[in-house]
Write a protein that binds this DNA or RNA. Structure first.
Lengths: 201, 201
DNA sequence: GCAATTTTGTAACAAACGTTATAATATTAG
DNA sequence: CTAATATTATAACGTTTGTTACAAAATTGC
């Protein structure tokens, strides 16, 4: 699609890779806590390149959120969707949550949206709508999987898919908070079987 | 206790009131997003008074957290502890949560600890231990109330108080996140009866 | 009333902030 | 090879940041 030959010096960095580095930087330091110097260093580019490619800091932040929402694999949701047995799928979801929030490759803890972006919901324009979209989209994905299980006879026909999807989403925020607070993964994991049980019964 | 007469010009502000204003400012703007000018304006004092009374910004932030943990009434926990019937108490807890996270008097949304402080857990020294204490203390208060209900015969003798306390705490983080994202209180409230049911059964 | 003491308001400080002008560099079109 | 163009790197811009001297103001003890 975008293979039209362009005149001029070619970019020396990959836009998506650099944007991912921005996500990781914001994730650890927060929007206001991450300086442009922090960002350019982590992204491996100079500020003029950053401004030309992504706009100012606020625009970069919005794009980082959109990148996270659209391109980053959410391993807990993936685990939930890919496990055929619904009982095991719910458990796999919570199991994956613990790993996701406490053992992220870049060392950042918790969840980018609920441990970092959330703070500037009231101060950075455009953040709130994105958060709301992230919430509702996640819930839809979960509810869809429940409906599939209902059709497959794995769940009773009156199983309230949407409500249990919201329950699963809300339960998820607990481990996220605990991990960000520095509580060890082991202590968080102890409850996940119980949480899965609460969702299914 | 501290009624020893002191020489010198008397303070023109109340330490606790000003500290509460600092909490509210941090709550809305975050640690890095709140400037010293924001803080002094909200607290109604000049920077030299602030530094003399509370120390630098980081120390003020820690003291604000401690003030919030120790002096601010947590209406959801209060509602939970004061309602004699345990079933109603759990429901009252979640009911109070919705009001607390979406209708705070100063306009700040969510929870100070899980919507604001959490972001700088990795960057501001001393924050993580405080968050961990807040989590475990909350769980202890909830578990204690469950034990009382068990002794009063309102709950079965094998009711897992500590685990359900953690469940209640984790469930709480969902509404906190939703409210901070700007979702209306009405949409959050719809699930609270179900969440209470999940805790009790 | 005078000295001692503590807090106040103003104003300044260096450092760091987000952002951009400028010029050198690396590519393509003709 | 030359002209045109897009991206790079350096360095600077004016603000805002957190923090602190300084002197005026308000109290107590003698």
């Amino acid at each position: 699609m975008n293979d039209t030959k362009k005149v001029g010096r070619p970019k020396t960095f990959d836009e998506h890779t650099a944007l991912q580095a921005a996500v990781d930087t914001f994730w650890v330091k927060g929007y206001d806590g991450a300086s442009m110097k922090d960002l350019t260093s982590a992204m491996g580019i100079n500020s003029p390149s950053l401004y030309a490619t992504y706009g100012d800091k606020e625009t970069l932040f919005i794009k980082a959120i959109e990148h996270y929402m659209g391109n980053v694999d959410c391993s807990p949701l993936d685990a939930f969707e890919n496990e055929p047995d619904i009982q095991k799928a719910v458990y796999a979801f919570f199991e994956a949550i613990v790993t996701y929030v406490s053992e992220h490759e870049k060392g950042s803890l918790g969840c980018f949206l609920s441990s970092c972006v959330v703070t500037c919901a009231e101060t950075v324009e455009g953040v709130k709508p994105l958060l709301q979209t992230a919430i509702t989209e996640s819930e839809k994905r979960i509810a869809k999987r429940f409906d599939q299980a209902k059709n497959a006879g794995q769940l009773p026909k009156n199983f309230p898919s949407k409500q249990r999807a919201r329950l699963m989403f809300d339960l998820r925020q607990g481990p996220v908070f605990r991990a960000r607070a520095g509580l060890p993964a082991k202590s968080i994991r102890q409850d996940m079987a119980c949480w899965a049980h609460a969702v299914l019964n």
